[in-house]
Design a protein around this nucleic acid. Structure first.
Lengths: 123, 123
DNA sequence: TCGATATTTCGAGAATAATCGAAATGATGA
DNA sequence: TCATCATTTCGATTATTCTCGAAATATCGA
């Protein structure tokens, strides 16, 4: 897994191809649901089987989707004896969001003033 | 165009299907480039032909991609005599980002402390 | 070692998306 | 009105992705 990376303050061509993968991964009903489920689950994450059952899709299909999300750097997996635990990858998500907001206002904060309110995590 | 919408402070099922469309729209090399080009271009936007030429794809292909982005609520078009001007839709983008960050920390700001630095638009 | 459980990989068919030339639409100026 | 330009829509081909059962892998407990 290559995963996301930043080069200095500006992002390179390479990040765009990674971002495309990440966005495409999230651009699917089932996978977006899974990702959000894992974000909600927090550090505890969820087992692969649990995820498949919650979404109502066969294990093999879900395995594909989870692999897709993992290759995109949006989730991480860890084997725990017989089960495999999946967690959201916060760093990957953060990099994706940063990439999307890059150059969003060309130095003019008025253009994207509204964005300020997004990042504030309101409990 | 239905476009993005918020219902109160929490987002509904309907927003997920819209978000999938938006993410899928951005999950394509050419379309992501176009969207970023339009974000960089600011309120002035760019003409359809100009965009196609810059990306090196035929006009008809680009028209498809632009339509895709527009249906997803990420760009808007406006006819100006003979040309058609496309602009990034900041509101659509903002809604998408908000959707992605929803419930990101389950009330525990420590979990996504890093997100705070993203929204700051640094000229 | 064997049987049971959890998950992934394989393989193939069905569904969806991307591409681009040709033809249609809309707007302009001579 | 007509020729021209910018863009979209149509139509058909190719490429990619989705899906899921069956088989393979990995781990455990008896």
């Amino acid at each position: 897994m290559l995963g996301p990376m930043l080069t200095g303050t500006h992002m390179t061509q390479g990040n765009q191809v990674w971002a495309v993968d990440a966005l495409q991964a999230l651009g699917h009903e089932t996978r977006l649901s899974v990702f959000r489920m894992l974000v909600q689950a927090g550090p505890e994450g969820r087992m692969a089987g649990e995820i498949a059952q919650a979404c109502g899709v066969p294990a093999s299909t879900m395995s594909h989707h989870l692999g897709n999300l993992e290759r995109a750097g949006l989730v991480a997996s860890q084997r725990e004896s017989r089960v495999i635990r999946y967690r959201a990858d916060y760093a990957g998500m953060r990099h994706l969001l940063a990439f999307l907001m890059e150059d969003c206002c060309q130095g003019d904060p008025l253009l994207c003033a509204d964005f300020a309110e997004i990042s504030a995590c309101k409990p």
